[in-house]
Design a protein around this nucleic acid. Structure first.
Lengths: 209, 209
DNA sequence: TAGATTGTTAATCGATTAACAATC
DNA sequence: TAGATTGTTAATCGATTAACAATC
């Protein structure tokens, strides 16, 4: 199994979006030069990255779109997909539940959990809302491998503990809490504040021009 | 003006959260060793980064919390803050409008824009909803420098054009569209899908253990 | 074949880490 | 002073870029 360096892994989603784009236009292959020009890297970087992807069909007209797409879908987990559960139906949780973004990539939201009894038993966008204590059972029966945490920060660790107990394999954490989890659970944190700070930093550097 | 390398800039928000944490506990200074231990870097990296921040008060017990906090608030734009406008009140826009996350950091949402006439004129969480054609006027009168785009992808470029015309200085883009903007406008994109792919990649690497 | 592009090795660049004298 | 930590220079590491022979 090829071990993908982190800087390369960060570029894979960009490659994938680009591949989908040009696939639509009916072109059958793409060169490192074209990718580099479009995404703002050097052709050298692209070629080095392509080597990390394993064997691709390539020729003097570049890499075949179909083999590139297949390799990326395999690596990014799109080809196999995953079942997900979301815990905490606040305004962020609702926005995530409504989003078609991951659904389109085969990451399917199968279950919602909340502690508010007035919404338990209801169905949001086709997804049932369960009580918190049904977590272990539902995660098992729906073969859920990823848990999304969008609760208030104060409940985040408790929810992470419950998910870990339910044998979840990955946690997508939308709270600003540094979760403690057992070794078999992977955590990926989503934090938008650093991105706003970066924008602020960029704008500031414009000022003295 | 110190030019901050990107890898350093990416760590600044982490330092800031940590500084707020220990400030609460009443401790007056922190060593590179403590920061490194808590955030998972080496003390060397921390000290190099501190040098990028400019002159800090330091001693044999470490860096003074107050000078470190002040330097970070200055660099991250927290001390001066900014006024923001949000365009596109879907479920994501609502979640952002409800969030206290940036408000606490002096990034204040002053205006919401949408094209749906049934909500124009209403007030959401204390923030007025304006029609799209009031954009230039409101951005000027409220001294707004950052525009948030949370519309459907199909409208994103039109909104970016309108914001640029209104002399906005930064765009915080929550759509997956690669926006084209004039040189005086900075764009920062927020994309959660790469983060989900990264989680998927991590989980996959667990599998063959 | 001729032209273009890959695959791969070597060179460069920049970031991280180590080491230690200077400072508090 | 003695102990601890910074500030800074040098060494290491890894990622990006350049170069070019091999391939289509």
């Amino acid at each position: 199994m090829p071990k993908i360096p982190l800087p390369v892994a960060a570029r894979l989603p960009l490659y994938y979006e680009y591949v989908l784009d040009i696939e639509k236009s009916g072109i059958a292959s793409v060169s490192s030069n074209m990718i580099a020009g479009h995404l703002g890297f050097t052709p050298s970087t692209i070629r080095q990255d392509m080597m990390s992807l394993g064997r691709l069909d390539s020729s003097a007209s570049g890499y075949s779109i179909s083999s590139l797409k297949a390799a990326l879908e395999e690596l990014l987990g799109i080809s196999r997909g995953a079942n997900m559960a979301l815990v905490g139906i606040g305004s962020l949780g609702l926005a995530l539940a409504h989003s078609r973004l991951f659904m389109e990539k085969n990451f399917i939201l199968r279950a919602l959990f909340d502690k508010r009894s007035d919404i338990i038993g209801s169905v949001i966008d086709g997804i049932p809302v369960y009580p918190m204590d049904a977590m272990t059972e539902v995660i098992l029966s729906e073969r859920i491998t990823i848990g999304i945490i969008s609760t208030p920060p104060s409940s985040a660790q408790d929810v992470a503990d419950a998910l870990a107990t339910s044998n979840i394999r990955g946690i997508w954490n939308f709270t600003p809490v540094a979760l403690k989890v057992p070794g078999h659970v992977r955590v990926e944190n989503v934090n938008v504040l650093p991105s706003l700070f970066k924008l602020s930093l960029l704008m500031k550097s414009d000022e003295k021009d």
